[in-house]
Every structure is written in structure tokens, then in C-alpha cells.
Amino acid sequence: MPSTPSTPETGTAEPVLEVRDLAKHYPLTRGVLVKRRIGAVRAVDTVSFALRRGETLGIVGESGCGKSTVAKLLVSLERPTAGTIHYRGEDITRLSGRALRAVRRNIQMVFQDPYTSLNPRMTVGDIVGEPFEIHPEAAPKGDRRRAVQDLLDVVGLNPEHISRYPHQFSGGQRQRIGIARGLALRPEIIVADEPVSALDVSVQAQVVNLMEALQNEFDLSYIFIAHDLSVVRHISDRVAVMYLGRIAETGTGREIYDHPTHPYTQALLSAVPVPDPEPREGRTRLLLTGDVPSPANPPTGCRFRTRCWKAQDRCAVEVPTLTPPPGLPGAASHPSACHFAEERAGIRA
């Protein structure tokens, strides 16, 4: 039941990106001269999902869950330890050189911090036009200034300001510069890692609205990574909830937010403060105990079991698969990696 009929909430459109069993382990070493490997931080472990044309897939999770590592893997800033990323039927994790560059043109990234992700010594024109240096075929040399000014106009900045420096812009404007740079090569996919979390509340909405408008205008597919569950609900068609390097639950916005079946998703949602004093009463708050375990030494079986109120012996032994739990009706029937997945009353405000 799509709430916005124009966007594909359920699986009809073709996938533009398919991620299968993706893993990234960072080695832990000891010793200065002779480095010995003493273990690995399993930042991302067997993550699979698909992104469809024109849709927004939101990835949410708390710090350390691996969501930013997923972003880096998708734009080939990091090489995966295992798994595949298929773009247009081709596994991009095996590409290099010219072939990789061609793919990168179509998968661009927008970073979190508009203060540190823009070179302070470059003008806005140089920053937004820099992708053309690497991909000269995207805009002929004589046309570049024109192309950059068009991009500034598209993201709502004054094209006259092409010669200004980043410090002359506010935080929201800087994020627009970052978005313009991401758009420069007319990519198909934009991976945005916490694009609005460094911005003031009154400016966040401007950038979220801009991203939505650009998606319609340029037929973009978004991977939108954030820790803010409210922003993700607003912008996403489908959502994946990550915990300690794995996807705990995935489904449409409505399935995840109104019918969560994984205990972690339920706890996460119940912890979000709602900007409304009325539902303070009568809302169940599931308070998790303890902290997220270290990804260098994750729990056996289900990774959430050390903080889960439902955990049984089985959870320590058997890794739950990300599949729709049997026997759950309607919107509750979506992939949830819990042996005891079920809906719970009083979660929603």
C-alpha cells in the first residue's frame, strides 16, 4: 500500500545496484616493525540488498553499525573483504583502472560534514568542476564554467558566487555545494552519508527538500545513510536497519516504522523522542541495557542477543537469517533477522 503512488514502494522497478554478502574486515595488528595480525574488526558482515531505479533506500543504525563502511564500499573508496556489488549486471568490486572510473562516474557520494569535505583553498567553481578534470568527457573544456554555474543554479545557489570560497557560505549552502559536486557527472546513483546531520534544524528541511526535488528531476536513485530515524522515514521508500555490521530488518517505510518485528528496531523506534508532548503517556519505551559490543569480538549467533530481552539459548548458537518470519500476516511479513520476530503493541506513538 504505497502512501506516495509516484514512487515505487514495493518491488516492481528494476534494480540498479545489487549487493550480495558484502563484508569488510579491517585487520587488527600488533607490533611496530613486524606486524602480526591478532584479529579483525568486522565492520560489515554479509550484507545484502538491492537498490531500484528512482527509489531511496535508507540505511539506519547507531554509531559503529557499519553503515558508513557500506557507503565507502559502494563508491569503491574501500575494497570489500568478500561479496559482490553488481551495477548494470557487472561486479564492480573486481574492476580497476578505466573500467572502474567509468562506473564511479555513475555512483557519486555526498558527505556528512560540509565543513571538512570541501577544500578551503579551492573556489566553489573549482570544487564543483573538479569531477570534470577526472572525467573530461562529461563536459568539454570550454563549457565547464557554464556547466558549473548551471549546477549551482540547480541546487539553489547564486551562479554569480562561482569564485567564492567555502568559508563564505553557511553550513546549508556548503552542503548544497557538496550536492552540486555529486551531481556534476549526472550520476544514476547518489550515496549520501549523513547528509543533513551536521545542519541546524531549520536548514535540514531545505536540504532534504532539495534532495527530493533533484531525485525527481534527474531520476536519481539514493542510498541515504543516517542515524536519524525521523529523517530516514521521511525520505526513504525502503529502509534497512543495521546492527553491528549486519542488517537486522528491512522493508518498506511503513513495514519498518509501523510494523517492526525485530526487537532491535522496536527498541530503536521506541527510544526516538517524538516532538509532541501528547503521546508521552501511554507510549511504551523499551530501554536497552548496556552498550553495543565491539565489532572486533561480536557475540556468537545473533549479534543483538546480549542486549535483547527475548534472547534464548538458540540465539547464541544459530545465526538468524534475514527472511520474512513464517506465520506473520500482512505488513509484518518482511525480512527480519530474529528467531522470535513478532509485532509488539505500544511501540508506535
Partner: peptide, 21 residues
């Protein structure tokens, strides 16, 4: 108040205060 997205329901386009502080 109008510019914050809500976790408890999915709204339409967000209201945005123009400009910056």
C-alpha cells in the same frame, strides 16, 4: 515545528524556513 520530519508518521514535503541564521 513544521520543519522536523516525524518518526511516527510519514508526512508530505517538509516546510523549510528560508535562509540561514
Amino acid at each position: 515545528l513544521d520543519s522536523v520530519p516525524r518518526v511516527d508518521h510519514r508526512g508530505e514535503r517538509l516546510y523549510a524556513i528560508k535562509g540561514a541564521p
